[in-house]
């Protein structure tokens, strides 16, 4: 519960686009993530808003495969 609450707050961003996408992801996909995917999701949340948005919009692509998978899921939410 605490962890989920913390993540929910970390999904509060400066850009409305991210608020909407990340909150949607948290409700839809997050509960089904594997341990390593959870770790990567938290890493993603540490990125600056504009960089994270570029990744979600597939304008930039990370090298890491798990990160790619998590981004796929975020895009699908």
């Amino acid at each position: 519960m605490t962890e989920m609450n913390r993540l929910r707050w970390n999904c509060r961003r400066g850009m409305l686009e991210l608020d909407l996408v990340l909150t949607g992801f948290l409700d839809k996909h997050y509960p089904k993530l594997t341990g390593s995917q959870v770790k990567v999701f938290k890493e993603l949340l540490d990125y600056p808003d504009t960089d994270l948005w570029d990744m979600i919009m597939a304008r930039t692509e990370p090298a890491d495969n798990t990160m790619k998978t998590v981004l796929q899921l975020i895009r699908a939410s």
Binding site: W9, R12, R13, G14, M15, L16, P48, D49, T50
Partner: peptide, 12 residues
């Protein structure tokens, strides 16, 4: 700040 400063709405 409620959020990390560089995530303030000015970022938009």
């Amino acid at each position: 700040s409620k959020v990390f400063p560089t995530r303030s709405h000015t970022v938009a």
